[in-house]
Amino acid sequence: MLDTTAGKISAFIAHRFPKATITDADDIFSLGFINSLFAMELVMFLEKEFGITLPNNELVIDNFRTVTRMAELVGRLRPEPAAV
C-alpha cells in the first residue's frame, strides 16, 4: 500500500493529522482538513515526492478532494517511464 501513489499521499496526510482516519475516497475538504497552509504543504509534497510541477490550471479543488483524485492527478502529470 505504502509504495503506491495513493499510499504515499495517505501516509503524508496521516503524518500531518495523526489523529484523523481517512479513506482514499473521503472528501478531505468536507472533513475540514484543508486550510491554505495545509494546501500549500500538500502541493509541495506532491511536487517533491512525485517529481512533478503542478500547473496553475490543475490547482483546482476537485483535483485535491480525495486521495484517489490526487493520485489520478499525479498519474496525469508524472512523466512516462522510459521504455526498456
Partner: peptide
C-alpha cells in the same frame, strides 16, 4: 497564479 480556492496558496507561499 490560480483562482478559486487554490489562490490562497499564492498568499501562503
Amino acid at each position: 497564479g490560480p483562482t478559486g480556492l487554490a489562490s490562497g496558496m499564492v498568499l501562503t507561499g
